[in-house]
Design a protein around this nucleic acid. Structure first.
Lengths: 362, 362
DNA sequence: TTGTAAGCGTTATCAA
DNA sequence: TTGATAACGCTTACAA
């Protein structure tokens, strides 16, 4: 490996000169500059970022904790975040938490060891992970993405509004009996979407006579199995207001699984039963019937998250003497309640083939 | 940040003792060990991996270059690789190449700067990237995944066989006129699948009278647009052997887009036209009609790739004095042609609803 | 405009 | 069984 020393020797200058040519932090005479540049080029020199990080106390890297990359929603998000980070000169260390708090803790510790400058965190589980809170306490800037965690900065969409728009649409179509297939019970996204749904149904003029709730994982298999379980329980055999005429899935993957199961039950969507998703991933436009869903501006969410994180990193908001700073602010009587920024982005209802008025009652 | 020095001071020992307690590289008396451990615990000490990397000359990290994380095929692969790497103590730096050789070069240079121990590389473009070859020449171990590149170690599936199985199936069903919607022209996966298809068709008893070829990106939009373009060109209006009765898409995403377009053209799959994909991602089982496809053992591919890479890394196969070693081997008369390992994994044909015999000729 | 040298947090070599 | 101390490759005072 060729080091800065080799370059210095080859160019007949000192290492600090080489360093300064590279960083531009002090003026260098043109001839020297050229000689150094030539040597760098000739030797194929590349600064060692471990060494740079050691002295600068910044690795210029971010930890990305994501629950499930096989879900294209997370895939697109991860992609957009990595690109945004790269544009700003940061690298991304990928961590697949798989909804497992132990794995999360493990990753967090590794990321701190690696001196990441910040954390992009997709919570998969309900409670903010203990290890995450420790990391925050240790002064590592964190931005929570997708879910809302009250005491941490975050970027997410207006899930309530998305639910509400779905609710209004379904109510206006005349649906009074619904099955809501949620993600993990208690997750803010799930709760907000559900509460929005309720509000929207009311606004749309129909207090639902029947709103069945199921919770589980944010996965196709959960949608699929829930429908079959419900069918076994006779939910779809009921008559009148008991029988759900619309299935509201808490995300697109669940909807995809539900769609399959409904079809296996010979229930045609939307003729016999309407179906909606949430997220607006690409395949929703492609499948048959195309899926009515709530579109998230994923790229904007992703870039906003990276922006927010870098802003916090570069403002030194993070610094280990943060506690000290806060103390000082206190002494100055200048203490303000620390503002926890929550960036909430708007969603768009996308009405497609999968919804229709309920079938005439039997 | 608490450093090894702080721990040493707190425990009343030298830094080298602390280091050795942690590494276990030399015997430590039980009392000292406990005192050190206690200090570590109490101070919340975490070794700085940048510093460790600087001296050990290994960052224990891998670069992962992937073209398109929004494609769940790559998402699952990335996930499985990251998990395998993590299990072995390596971190993964995520790089989204987006099929752009410039981006690739950029990432490669960054990864070398970061002293990654190896590279997991999904080629998106035809020619092995110049920058990649330079990295290889610089002595960084690389494993190419998914595509086959002759002079580089790789892990991929038997694409020819997958194509062949599809060909046999379609031939046996009686299809003689096909439309093949490929990925990028010239990519090994595309070529191999196509050649396999041809072989399979022949074996299945029908030399195709008509095999239309289209190439483009490995994306849903490409499948979608190709079908519409073909329709505008009258391809589906032709009669007799001219009209394709089956569409073979080079991957599942293309098939998904094609399915949508066929439906918009009022061509029902499989009644009017059969359709097949490749990869076997999750959604292929869920959509309507469910997609006949070739299933890749993605997790196995991913873990095999990581295994192979780590094996090469840890065998020192990579070492910068590789050239020197090779020279030495030469002197010893022991030179063997360097074996470039290619791990080829089997695929499975999954026959689902999207294929049927061709419609009776009009 | 340039060079010298201290120091970043580790590991590893040598002594004791 | 332990401790000094010299690297590792870089940045950055401080000097010249």
């Amino acid at each position: 490996m060729t080091t800065i020393k080799d370059v210095a020797r080859a160019a007949g200058v000192s290492v600090s000169t080489v360093s300064h040519v590279l960083s531009g932090r002090r003026p260098i005479s043109e001839p020297t500059r050229l000689r150094v540049l030539e040597a760098i080029e000739r030797l194929g020199y590349r600064p060692n970022r471990l060494a740079q990080g050691l002295v600068s106390k910044s690795s210029r890297s971010l930890g990305l904790l994501v629950p499930d990359l096989a879900n294209p929603f997370f895939g697109s998000m991860a992609e957009a975040m990595e690109i945004a980070a790269h544009d700003r000169g940061y690298s991304v260390i990928l961590c697949n938490t798989n909804l497992d708090p132990k794995r999360e803790a493990d990753y967090l510790s590794m990321l701190l060891s690696r001196q990441v400058d910040g954390l992009l965190y997709f919570p998969g589980t309900r409670v903010p992970n203990r290890a995450l809170l420790e990391a925050v306490a240790a002064g590592v800037p964190v931005v929570v993405v997708d879910e809302r965690i009250d005491n941490l900065p975050g970027v997410f969409v207006d899930n309530f509004d998305g639910g509400r728009q779905l609710g209004r649409l379904l109510a206006q179509l005349g649906h009074r009996s619904l099955l809501f297939i949620g993600g993990p019970e208690g997750l803010p996204t799930v709760t907000d979407r559900l509460n929005g749904l309720r509000a929207g149904l009311a606004e749309g003029g129909s207090a639902p006579t029947n709103l069945l709730l199921r919770f589980g994982e944010y996965r196709a298999s959960h949608g699929y199995e829930t429908i079959h379980v419900c069918a076994r329980e006779g939910v779809f055999a009921a008559v009148g207001d008991e029988r759900p005429t619309a299935v509201v899935a808490a995300n697109d993957m669940i909807a995809l699984g539900a769609l399959r199961a409904l079809r296996e039950l010979q229930l045609q969507v939307p003729r016999d039963c309407s179906l909606t998703g949430f997220d607006g991933v690409e395949f929703t436009a492609m499948i048959t019937p195309s899926l009515t869903t709530v579109q998230q501006p994923s790229t904007r969410v992703a870039t906003a998250a990276v922006e927010l994180l870098l802003q916090r990193i570069e403002s030194g908001e993070n610094h280990r003497d943060r506690a000290a700073q806060r103390q000082q602010a206190h002494d100055d009587q200048a203490e303000v309640a620390p503002v926890i920024p929550h960036v909430v982005l708007p969603v768009t209802l996308v009405v497609r083939e999968s919804v229709a008025p309920p079938p005439p009652q039997r």
